[in-house]
Design a protein around this nucleic acid. Sequence first.
DNA 1: AGCACA
Length: 211
Amino acid sequence: MPGQKNTIYIKNLSEKVRHEELKKSLYAIFSQFGTILDIVVSKTVKMQGRAFIVFKEVESAVNAFKAKQGFEVFEKPMRIEYAKTDSDVILKQKRPHLEKPKKTRTPSTRDDDIPKRMKKETHRLPGGPTAEEPPNHILFLANLPDETSDLMLSMLFKQYAGFKEVRMVPNRPDIAFVEYENPLQAGTAKDALQGFKITPTNATKISFAKK
DNA sequence: AGCACA
C-alpha cells in the first residue's frame, strides 16, 4: 500500500509530560508490535506533542497504526499517520554501503534507551483442551524498570476488559499488582501483555498473584 | 492540517 512506512508519526500527544516519560510510555505501548529501532520525541516548539516511532518491519508499523489509532495516552487520543519520509535509521539500513551526505550524528549523543534490535515477543495463547479457570483475578508484575509509574501501567492494562486498578508497592519500584473483576479477564490481560517492555532491558514478568 | 533524526 502506498503511504505505509516503517515509521509512524503520532500527533496529539500530551504536551505536559516530560519527554522521557512520554518516550517510555510509547515504548511500552508499541513494543508489542515488533522491533522498535528508534523513538524520536522532538522538543522544539513546532514539534511538541509529536513523536516518530521507527519499526524494523513495515508490517509492525501497519499493525501498530491500525491497533492504536485513537488510543488514549495521558488522557489524549493519539492521531497516527505514516511518516512522509523514511527515518535515518531506515535509510542507513536500505543503503548500508553509502555514507550519509550531511546529517551526521555521533553515537555518543544518541539516545541509548532504544535497542539496536529487539526480539519480537511471542505470546502463547491461553488455554488448550484442558483450560481451567485461572487462580486469581489479581496479577503480579515483576522485573519492572525503576521509572515505572502507575499511570504507564494503567494505560496498558486498562485496554483489557474488567480492569479495576493498578497498585504499586512503596519502595519496590520493580513490582506491582493489577486487579481485574474476574480471573478470566486477568488471564486474558496476562497472556496479552506477558513480557512487555517499558524499557528495552526489562521484560515484565506477569503471574497470578498468590492468594 | 504543524514531519525529526543532539
